[in-house]
Simulated assay, not measured.
Amino acid sequence: MATRKDRLKGVSVALAVLLTAIGPATALAAEKVTIFAAASLKNALDAINGEWRKQTGKESTASYAASSALAKQIEQGAPADVFISADLAWMDYLADEKLIKGDTRSNLLGNRIVLVSGSKDAAEVEIGPGFDLAGLVGNERLAMGAVDSVPAGRYGKAALEKLGLWPSLAGKVAGAESVRAALLLVSRGEAPYGIVYRTDAAADAGVKVIGTFPENSHPPIIYPIAITADSRNPDAGAYLDFVRSPKAAALFEAEGFTVLE
C-alpha cells in the first residue's frame, strides 16, 4: 500500500508536469503588450490603450519619450513589442539594424508643427519667408525639441531653414529632450515661444497657438508603426490591428492627428 509520503510525491510530480505543460503558455498569454511611443502620442495612446483593455480584457503598457531615445533603447535590448516613431528616420534606423518586423510596418499618422506662446494675449502671426521670429523672441529663448535628434526639433529646424529664418534663431534655441519637454518650457513660462506639434498644443491649456508652419516648409510629418523583431508577445499583432482600427482612428483624430491608414 502506498504511504502518505509516496502519495504526496506522486501529486507533486503530477503538478510539476502540469505546470511545465501550461505554465509558460499561460504566462505568455497574460503578458502585457509593451509599446514604445513618441512623447506626442501620450494623450491619444493612453485613451486607445484604455479602450483596448475595455474591449479585450488585455493589458498594455506604454513608455513615452523622444523617438530617438526609444529607438536607442530598443537597439540596446529594451523589451518593447511595438514601436511608434514620430518620424520615418528613427524607424528606418531600426529597420536597417533588423530590429523591426518589416512586414508589420506602416505609416499610421500625420501631424503639423505650430508656434505657441505661453501668453493668452499673444497676437496671431503669419509664418512665412521674412517673418521676424527672431525679433519676436527677442533676448529670450525659442523652445524646440533637440534639433539633431528629436523629430519635432528636426521638422522645426527644417521649416526655419526653408523659410530663411534659421541663421537669426540658431543661437536662441532652447533644445529639449522631447517635444513634450519643449511644450512645458512654454507652458511654465520658462520660454515665451516654442515650436511643437499641433496635437501637443491642443493638450496643454497653458499655451496658445499663434501660427502654423506651412506644410511645404518641412518634410511630411509621418508616424510609422511596427512590431519589434524581438517581440514574442502573441497579442502584439492584435494590438497593432486595434491601433489601426476605426475605433482608434477616431481617438487619434480627437487629439488632432491625421490618420493615414
Rank of each mutant, 00 (worst) to 15 (best):
A16N: 03
A29L: 13
S40V: 09
A29M: 11
A44P: 01
A37P: 00
T20N: 02
N43R: 09
E51F: 05
Q76S: 14
K58D: 12
L70D: 05
T56V: 12
F36S: 03
A21M: 08
R53D: 09
E51L: 11
K32M: 05
T56E: 11
I35D: 07
I22D: 00
Q76C: 02
K72N: 05
A71H: 04
I48V: 13
S40E: 12
V13F: 11
K72M: 08
T34R: 12
L19M: 13
K72C: 00
I48F: 07
L18A: 15
I22S: 08
K72T: 10
L18E: 03
Q76A: 14
A62F: 05
Q73V: 01
A27I: 15
A29Q: 14
A62I: 15
R53K: 15
L70A: 03
E31I: 10
E59N: 14
S60M: 07
D46A: 07
A30M: 13
A25D: 08
T56A: 11
T20Y: 09
A27S: 10
A38N: 13
A38D: 14
I22Q: 00
G50Q: 10
A71K: 05
K58V: 01
I22L: 09
A69V: 14
A71T: 03
I35G: 08
Q73D: 11
N43M: 06
A16K: 04
L70M: 10
R53C: 02
L41S: 03
G50W: 03
S63W: 06
I74T: 04
V33T: 11
S68N: 07
A25G: 07
D46V: 11
A21S: 05
T56W: 06
Q55F: 03
L15H: 03
T26S: 05
N49D: 14
N43F: 00
K54Y: 07
L19R: 04
A66W: 00
T26K: 05
A21I: 10
G23A: 07
A69Q: 14
A65V: 06
E31V: 07
I35P: 08
N49I: 06
K54C: 00
K54G: 00
A62G: 05
S40F: 07
A21R: 00
A30K: 13
V13N: 03
A71F: 04
I48Y: 05
P24H: 12
S60L: 07
E31W: 09
A21G: 02
A71S: 14
F36P: 01
A21F: 10
A65C: 04
A30W: 08
A62V: 15
A25P: 00
G57D: 04
L45T: 04
L41P: 04
P24Y: 10
Q76F: 10
L28E: 06
W52M: 11
K54Q: 12
E59R: 11
A44M: 10
A14T: 04
N43G: 00
T26A: 13
I35C: 09
K42I: 02
T20Q: 05
N49S: 11
Q55A: 12
A38S: 13
Y64F: 15
E31R: 15
A21Q: 02
E31Q: 15
S63D: 09
Q76T: 11
S40C: 03
A65G: 07
A16I: 12
A27G: 00
E59Q: 13
A44G: 09
L41T: 04
S60F: 04
F36L: 08
L41A: 03
A47Y: 00
A21C: 05
A38T: 00
V13T: 06
L70H: 02
A62K: 05
I35F: 12
T20A: 15
